[in-house]
Amino acid sequence: MNIFRLSGDLLHLASIFILIARLHQTKSCAGISLKTQYLYLLVFATRYLDLFLGFVSVYNTLMKIFFLASSGYIVYLMYSPLKASYDKSLDSFRVEYIIAFAAVVALAFPHKYSVVEVLWSFSIYLESLAIIPQLFQMTRTGEADNITSHYVFALGGYRALYMLNWFYRYYTEDNYVDYISWIAGIVQTALYGDFFYIYITRVLKGKSFKLP
């Protein structure tokens, strides 16, 4: 564990709390992509199968359980109590392409050919692309409320911190490298590029998230 990874994990945790608070406060899921939330649930379900296979640390186990439970809860909220506020026509990105792409890359380049390893690779590639429906919806409508942009910023920030973590691990842990995590992580962070720019130039200056 290092400070970058811990900060990244905590920011990831914060992003989920921000989203749940937003859903509870506004009693609406307008502006939030259900498809992105479904993808995160699928990401955690396929990656954290290893909860049953091995033990890393209490921290690791508790975080995994939290991510699984919270993503299930968010999907439940959007699917059931808040369903009336969900506008399907705005959430129109075809996620089939993302899932198929992640599956093909996972099958082509896993660390090892076993069910758990291929699913792990799938979850890493899927996570790197899972934000696309959310960003797509924000681009389509051209705006987002502030708390939604804080949510997306926290998610992007978590990934940026993980990249610093990998640099740190490379130098401190005998050239540690996990190329799948690295490639997917770089792609994932890059996807947030435009968003970060608008967030910093507008939202942090007290304006709303609006595309020019």
Partner: peptide, 10 residues
């Protein structure tokens, strides 16, 4: 260390 089984990150 077997990199493939070292998934210690979240």
């Amino acid at each position: 260390m077997d990199r493939a089984s070292a998934h210690d990150e979240l």
